[in-house]
Simulated assay, not measured.
Amino acid sequence: MFGTAILWTHAIAGALWLGASASFTIAGLALVAGSEEQRSFVERGAGRINACAMLAAVLLVITGMLNLGRVFQLRAGSLSHAFLYVLGVKIVLYIAMLMTLGVAMRAIPAMRFELGRGIEGAAPRAMRTMLRVHIAILSMGGIAMILGLWLVGS
């Protein structure tokens, strides 16, 4: 029962992270560049979405380690080479996604600094950066979820 709860929590954390990135992407594509709505979204909403994604990322790594420990225990420490390879790819994707999310999280303070100095185009520039980041996270996260389904079935 505990193992199933951890596995579902892991899957939900992954879906939450991808959902946050998808929400950002949809909003980012819907807002007119340079508009007041875009600036308001970047100043008020983007940080919350990034924080939600970061929370999901932390939960994902915790539940991932718990799941791996459980699988290792159930299989008496014998994991196939294919399992370890796929797991390695998922870990690399996770690290890349986390580093990419870090870029999005740094874009907001950089934008505020630029706005404070009166630099034009700070909000649209931050939005473009974060939009690219969240699209990349969606791409990598989709692959990671597919690989996760393979791991569950193996």
Rank of each mutant, 00 (worst) to 15 (best):
A5K: 12
L7P: 08
W8S: 14
H10M: 02
I12A: 07
I12Y: 08
I12N: 01
A13G: 09
A15E: 08
L18E: 01
G19R: 08
S23P: 01
F24L: 12
F24V: 00
T25H: 10
I26Y: 14
I26S: 15
A30F: 06
A30H: 07
V32K: 15
S35V: 08
E36I: 04
E37T: 13
A46I: 00
G47Y: 02
N50F: 13
A51E: 08
C52M: 15
M54Y: 03
V58T: 09
L60G: 05
V61L: 14
V61Y: 02
I62S: 10
L66A: 10
R70Y: 12
V71I: 15
Q73L: 06
Q73E: 15
Q73A: 15
L74R: 09
R75Y: 07
G77T: 01
S80H: 06
S80M: 03
F83L: 10
F83Q: 08
L84W: 03
V86A: 05
G88Q: 01
G88I: 03
V89S: 12
M97G: 06
G102E: 09
V103I: 14
V103F: 08
M105I: 14
M105A: 14
R106L: 07
R106C: 02
A107D: 03
A107Y: 05
R112S: 02
F113C: 15
L115C: 13
G116F: 11
E120Q: 10
A122C: 02
A122S: 04
P124N: 11
M127C: 04
T129F: 00
T129V: 08
M130A: 08
R132L: 09
V133H: 03
M140I: 02
G142A: 08
A144E: 08
A144P: 04
G148D: 05
L149P: 00
W150N: 07
L151K: 03
S154L: 13
